[in-house]
Design a protein around this nucleic acid. Structure first.
Lengths: 253, 253
DNA sequence: GACGCCGCTTCCGTCACGCGGAAGCAGGGC
DNA sequence: GCCCTGCTTCCGCGTGACGGAAGCGGCGTC
């Protein structure tokens, strides 16, 4: 994280050092990670805190402030999307009691925006706010299938992680699966990411032009075949319902 | 929103102009609201966009970017609290099918952090990310009951909105209600905010010292008396469960 | 209790970076 | 074609940001 030397850039660099794994850190840790001088860091941090972007713990460490969360929650592809989708994810969860997830594509990755995980569902590795590659999951498959060409090519040309023996890494097969995803308006991931778990995902359209930028997915344990195929309809219906609400909103804005 | 004249401050001022009601705006709108010169605004906005804090719509308007949402989601009292609480709110919702809400206190107000609202529940006015005064709601009563003295005094001395004929505005009565809230570890709001709706709320403890900084609440329509009293136990249990998880987390951090 | 270490805070002189007026540009309405 | 509005780019001036260094305070050590 080199110094671009612009004042606002330093502030953003400071904010960027906070992650889910490192939600709070001391002044010198921030200084180290940003490469800024300690005194500079101090000034920037103090100013951010004054505005409410950062807060201080009793121990003197710093963490992201509620004010910044509030502003971040105005993100159309973040909290606002989440707010619209949650009731439908809710319904879906109640029927299935499995993990329900919502993600948006950001470049060649996806960011998890919402997740409903009751106590009875499979334990998942992903977290809200986390980034994840597109390959290897049903949600990623959906996002990739409807992504612009350059994104698709970049991903298919890039490195591919093999998570399980079932992970598909052959570009030709992947292309066929993407075509199939577009045809069926939904993707199924059979143990490609984790052994014993199967995912089903469907596209959510947002924006004025109805572009697909989000995906709704469900993850279930151990089942294959007919049981999974039955999940397609509720998932598709929920995704379509969310898209409809978003479309209406865009119109009335 | 006067100019404090510091560079980072201008960037923050720009971010601060985005609200739920105004999620996207043009360059000149931002310039007007911040009081910055157009060229300055342009430079700042461009830089924020480059980092990912802002994004541009096809129409040329600006809105909060996903990157900022990601950073905001690292807020302990925001998304992280939400992630811990959601499964329990989930369970509570499934039993009741009523609105379940989570809020944290920020000064003399509260900020809604999470909300589960199925299609069958009462329509509420509040939104996730919104601020709200403490008086007049069960959740606010809980937050006020456990707030530092100076906050409590400030609120009781301040102006009080009367929402319905049932709204309590007498400081003496309010003090008695706060004491009762602490005694019962939960608050009940009988039609003080909206006619025909009743709220029940319980404290959530977070932070190392187990301070109460959040409240879990439920809002139901039309009922009073015994039906409401029965809600106290599940709400209390859920709030306690969330507090426990948060306590353990703080220990292992 | 004195010493030293470490991390945070404050100070201040220098200098480059941010500032905003003004000019240029693109769209679109009359 | 003209004007008007809103966005973008340019550039010289002056001020606010920079970071080295000194000061401070808490804590562990001898």
């Amino acid at each position: 994280m080199a110094d671009q030397l612009t004042a606002a850039g330093k502030a953003l660099a400071v904010l960027g050092t906070f992650t889910r794994d490192r939600p709070s850190q001391s002044l010198s840790q921030i200084a180290n990670r940003t490469g800024l001088a300690l005194s500079t860091t101090h000034r920037v941090v103090t100013e951010l805190a004054q505005w409410g972007a950062l807060e201080r713990t009793d121990e003197g460490d710093w963490h992201i402030g509620l004010r910044l969360w509030e502003v971040g929650s105005v993100c159309p592809r973040g909290q606002i999307l989440r707010d619209v989708a949650l009731p439908y994810m809710q319904d879906l969860y109640e029927v299935t009691h499995e993990n329900i997830q919502l993600a948006v594509r950001e470049g060649t990755e996806m960011v998890f925006v919402e997740r409903i995980a009751g106590h009875r569902s499979v334990e998942l590795r992903t977290m809200v706010g986390a980034r994840h590659p597109l390959l290897g999951t049903a949600m990623g498959m959906v996002l990739l299938a409807y992504a612009p060409n350059e994104i698709r090519e970049a991903v298919l040309a890039g490195p591919m992680d093999r998570h399980t023996p079932h992970t598909v890494t052959d570009p030709k097969t992947l292309r066929a699966m993407l075509a199939q995803t577009r045809r069926a308006t939904c993707a199924v991931n059979d143990r490609q990411f984790q052994d014993h778990t199967v995912g089903v995902a469907a596209p959510v359209r947002l924006g004025e032009h109805g572009d697909v930028e989000a995906a709704l997915g469900i993850v279930v344990a151990g089942q294959t075949g007919a049981a999974v195929r039955q999940l397609r309809h509720p998932v598709l219906a929920a995704a379509r319902a969310i898209s409809n609400v978003l479309g209406q909103r865009a119109g009335t804005r």
